[in-house]
Amino acid sequence: MLTVLLMILRYSFLLLLFVFIFKLVKWMVKDLKADRLLEDPAGGRIIVINSSLPEPKPGASFDIGKEIIIGRGRGSGVLIRDSFTSTRHARVFLKGGQYWLEDLKSTNGTYLNEVQVGRPVLLTDKDIMQVGGVTFQFARWGYEVGSGN
């Protein structure tokens, strides 16, 4: 009797390990799908509204996609050839369906609505960003989050 019980327990020990793994994977896949739902409807761009340089001109607009780097370096999505701009100056990125602005430890700082950015900050529609001699406006479409803020 005991041996049978022990054998059943031994196999259920192994089985339960896989029940755990199965549930874990199932919920993780669900979570990944939820993430995608959050990020899909997103869309945002930054528009140059004032520029002390020949390039980029006021009115120029850049799609952010998942992430865009603003800086003087070649890899930048928004290229600013300005001695006040760092190679990788700032980035705007998408996370959890929201756009965030982060200063990449630039020498002269990044400003959001005239306040210097320390930690990554959340962007809302019509926010004004300043990098070196260029001023941008953030514009968001898709759904309206916290419109009126």
């Binding site: 327990l9 020990f13 339960l16 755990f20």
Partner: peptide, 21 residues
Amino acid sequence: CHLLLLAGIYTLAGTLVLYLG
């Protein structure tokens, strides 16, 4: 919480084997 519960049942099965064995 759910996953920890499953982990608990798994551990219980393992320790029961040791206890009965």
